[in-house]
Amino acid sequence: MYDFAYHKPTNLADAAKLIGAKKDGRLLAGGQTLLPTMKQRLAQPSDLVDLAGVAELRGIKAEGGGVTVGAMTTHYAAHTSPELRKAIKALAKLAGGIGDPAVRNRGTLGGSIANADPAADYPAALVGLGATVNTNQRKIAADDFFKGLFETALKPGEIVLSVSFPAPKRAAYRKFANPASRYAIVGVFVAETANGVRVAVTGAGPKVFRATALEQALAKKFAPESLAGASVPAAGLNSDLHASAEYRAHLIGVMAKRAVAAALK
C-alpha cells in the first residue's frame, strides 16, 4: 500500500471541505473494497477521509411507507434492523448475504454503492426498488446513479448521505454467488411496486440493469410462470472464468423465477 494522509472529520461540513480540497483524496467508508484495492497498489489516494465519525451518515428511519438508510449503515446493521426488516424484508435479507460476517460488520451501504462494483448486491436493490440516493448536493434516482463499471453519477467530492427506499408491495432477491468471491455471478431483485414491476440484475453486465422483458412479462401477472418464454439476451453480458454470457442469461431467468416465487411467499 502507498502511504497517504489520514483524516477523520466529525461532521459533514468538515468532511465535504476535506474531500473537496484534496484532488486525489478518497472517502473511506467501511473500507472493505477500497483497502484491498490499495493493498494491491491498484489505487493511490493522496488522502483518505474517514467518514466513521460523521453522525449525519448514520441511522435507519422508516418514513412515509419507505425507509431511509444512512450511508454508513453496515450490512450487519441493515440486516438486523427491525425497521428495515418490517418495511422491506427483501432488502434486509440482501444485506445479510453480502461478503461474509466480518465484512458485513464493517462494509457499508454508502461504500458499496459509491464503489459500484458490477457484481455487488446493493445496486440491484436500489434499482429494483426505484430508490433515491441522497447526497450532500442533490437527490439522484437509482436508475440514473449507476453509470458503468465502477462508475456512478457522483461528482468529485460529492458525499452519499443516505438512500431512500420506497416500500414495495412485495419483493425478493436471489443471488447465484461466485463460489470463490461470493459476489453475484447473477443477482436478480424483483419488486412489485406502486409504479409497476421492476426487475434489476447485478453481476451479469458491466453495471446493474433493468430486465425490461422480464418486467413486461411480470406486469401481466406477478408469478413465476409468467416468465416462461421471457429472457434476457446473452449479447452484451459478461463472460469470464466462472460464467459464460449464455449461462448468465440463463441464470437471470432462473433467479428471476425463484425471486418471484420467494416474493409471493
Binding site: 473511506l28 484491498p36 466480518a102 460488520n105 464493517r106
Partner: peptide, 9 residues
C-alpha cells in the same frame, strides 16, 4: 464484533 484485521487501518 468480528473484523478482518487485514482490511482495517
Amino acid at each position: 464484533v468480528s473484523a478482518k484485521a487485514c482490511t482495517l487501518l
